[in-house]
Design a protein around this nucleic acid. Structure first.
Length: 641
RNA sequence: GCCCAUGUGGCUCAGUCGGUAGAGCACUUCCAUGGUAAGGAAGGGGUCAUCGGUUCAAAUCCGGUCAUGGGCUCCA
């Protein structure tokens, strides 16, 4: 007797061991048709898997994340099979399912281009139509190695060699195609009705620069064509939110060949930027931070002392003046430390919180540059906290809370990562462990969910990172809170304790927005360029019906300016429909239409970008409404999804 | 840095088989003075990223460089 517990708590009983697919059939034939796999006691399983003992089973459809993974993993095998049919001699590396699709890495004589996509898709569809049965088999290690060697699959041989001694080595076979794979998979190829190859890219074998670069084919698949079409449509929509495109259209910033990775901010972009910085400054004062500003260029010796020269010099810019070597700062901490060192401190002065909107330069690799998200010069909304060990946890928690509050203003969702000791690091393992545990304890105490990112800490300490999403779902690290025992030692920082003795403070390096540039990039995509009124470069555009009303418009403009509302007047000799269209495309929150009626009533006709015509209002009334939105930082962007 | 692709007026793009450039928008001027997403006409504007090669002739073919895009690696 095998008892199967289903997610709803109900129990099905079977005489003997039962296949997953038969459990589904036992529930309903209809269900059995849409099932792609199952979770059996928390592990994914294929439909053929036999359940021998009492188990908890949840059946997976394509709509479930694990279901999609099974579906797309099979899709990746179909891709590999098609490619090997079309380009014999192509070696297979790995081909996993990923968010929104799957990929396969190939090593092939043939150089794949977009022109091949159609052909590969056609071959894949042929395989789907052939309805090939997918079968699992296992081989002992030696046989598995011989088998893959005979096939010339040297990458698979390497993978097998790296599997643990006791690992089960399984293969999946469909027609004449066999791949080393843990599974599970669909039962046949026929379910993959809808598929599309999306792009081709280079990718290092095993993700290491030292290895050969393989050709990675990205693709996606769905159960139904309709889902694929919907997905492709969403991708198109997301492209419209691309901050690089909107940055140009809305005249916020530009990039130039003369300075790759060095963004140029235009007047409208500067308004957004300055508004963000004003918010930042105000909130930091409330949280007990002081603000400092330290130089961009400092002598090279300082960077030797800080450890940056040793650990970071390939990313630094250098310059020489009067025979002395200077470095352009890639980080703000040494500057902040020099500020700290210019005073004596008592334990009463701690925690000391010092904020700096610090312009840093980092020579990122050319291929890494990406709009405002990844640049070579940027302003970190940095801060350095000098604290006693006793204060450490509270201060970390304060930073995490502060970050959360700031992100909430914009309506961001984010995820948190805890990064541990990297290969290139200073300090002892003991210090690192204490530091990592302090961060972990703070997160646990605050009940913040996080994932661990092994080996991704800064060279001087571990960190908590906050990641925000862009329009197409890529995540970008923005906020960070880094713990550092090293700099205080290297710079011999101290404070006088209650006991009258010298003690060493601990340092926290942290950012909230991350960099103003990246944060703006994310903001632009988040709002689809339609900034909430409080952030909008232009809050109101006045649109006279004809030239006759330009003077009245100018009067309204003056009134609004006096109330610190950002306003433009469109005096061009164009029809009102044209002026509205342009203001609408510029995503300006408020349009004031003024003509004969408005002049007579001393009013304006208000049009909002999302709601349309709101009718006539007095200037005082509408100004009050706008100012209230600005004061409350109301999130009135129609662009947020 | 690596793999692949791309680079034509301010912007978006067309340009076939090599025969020395074209559209729409924007801009300027004129007409029109119009009530909630593009009124009409005329005009100006390009060394086809850049350097070199092949050719009687190169935007077009080949190579180098630079930049951009999609990834990898790396990172705020």
């Amino acid at each position: 007797m095998v008892r199967i517990t289903l997610p709803d708590g109900s129990i099905r009983e079977f005489e003997e061991a039962v296949k997953v697919i038969d459990i589904a059939k036992n529930i309903s034939e209809g269900l059995a048709r849409v099932i792609v796999g199952a979770m059996v006691n928390g592990c994914t399983a294929g439909l053929d898997q036999i359940v021998e003992k009492d188990s908890t089973v949840s059946l997976l459809k394509f709509d479930d994340d694990e279901g999609k993974n099974i579906f797309r993993h099979t899709s990746s095998h179909i891709l590999a099979q098609a490619v090997q049919r079309l380009y014999p001699g192509t070696m297979l590396a790995i081909g996993p399912a990923i968010d929104n699709g799957f990929y396969y890495d190939f090593d092939s004589e043939h150089v794949f281009t977009e022109e091949d996509f159609e052909k590969i898709e056609a071959e894949m569809k042929k395989i789907v139509k052939q309805d090939l049965k997918i079968e699992r088999f296992e081989l002992p290690r030696n046989e598995a190695l011989v088998y893959m060697e005979e096939k010339g699959e040297q990458y698979k041989v390497e993978l097998i060699n790296d599997l643990p001694e006791d690992a089960v080595i399984s293969f999946y076979k469909q027609g004449d195609f066999v791949d080393l794979c843990a599974g599970p998979h669909l039962q046949t190829t026929k379910k993959v009705k809808s598929l599309k190859i999306l792009s081709i890219a280079g990718a290092y074998w095993r993700g290491s620069e030292d290895n050969k670069m393989l050709q990675r084919v990205y693709a996606t698949s769905f159960e139904k064509n309709k889902q694929l079409e919907e997905y492709l449509r969403r991708l198109e929509e997301a492209k419209k939110r691309d901050h690089r495109k909107l940055g140009k259209e809305l005249d916020l910033f530009s990039m130039h060949e003369e300075g790759p990775g060095f963004p140029f901010f235009h007047p409208k972009g500067m308004i957004v930027r300055n508004t963000l910085e004003d918010l930042w400054k105000k909130e930091h004062i409330k949280k007990g931070y002081g603000e400092v500003k330290t130089p961009i260029i400092l002598n090279e010796e300082l960077w030797h002392r800080s450890g940056h020269y040793e650990n970071y010099k390939e990313n630094m810019y250098f310059t020489e003046v009067d025979g002395e070597s200077f470095a352009v700062k890639p980080m703000n901490c040494p500057g902040g430390i020099l500020v700290y060192k210019s005073n004596m401190y008592s334990y009463r002065d701690l925690p000391l919180r010092m904020g700096e909107l610090g312009l840093v330069h980092r020579h990122e690799m050319s291929g890494a540059l990406h709009g405002l998200m990844r640049v070579r010069s940027f302003t970190q909304d940095d801060a350095h906290l000098f604290v006693t060990l006793d204060q450490l946890k509270d201060e970390i928690m304060g930073v995490v809370k502060f970050t959360d509050e700031m992100y909430k203003i914009f309506g961001f969702k984010y995820h948190v990562e805890l990064s541990t000791k990297p290969e290139k690091a200073i300090g002892t393992d003991e210090e690192w462990n204490v530091a990592i545990e302090s961060l972990r304890e703070a997160l646990i105490e605050m009940d913040v969910k996080y994932i661990v990112n092994e080996g991704d800490g800064a060279f001087y300490g571990p960190k908590i990172d906050f990641h925000l999403e862009d329009a197409i779902g890529r995540t970008w690290q923005c906020g960070t809170c880094q713990l550092d025992f090293q700099m205080p030692q290297r710079f011999d920082l101290s404070y006088v304790g209650q006991d009258g003795e010298k003690h060493r403070p601990v340092m926290l390096h942290r950012t909230i927005l991350g960099s103003i540039e990246r944060f703006m990039g994310i903001l632009i995509e988040h709002y689809a360029g339609a900034f909430p009124t409080w952030l909008a470069p232009v809050q109101v555009r006045i649109l006279p019906i004809s030239d006759k009303f330009n003077d009245y418009g100018a009067g309204v403009k003056k009134q609004l300016e006096d109330m610190d509302i950002r306003v433009e007047l469109d005096t061009r000799s164009e029809k009102i429909g044209y002026k509205i269209r342009e203001a609408q495309l510029q995503k300006i929150p408020y349009m004031f239409v003024v003509g004969e009626k408005e002049v007579e009533a001393s009013a304006v006709s208000v049009r909002q970008r999302a709601e349309g015509d709101m009718g006539s209002k007095s200037i005082e009334e509408i100004a009050k409404e706008i100012l209230a939105k600005v004061k409350n930082r109301e999130n009135d962007s129609p662009g947020v999804e």
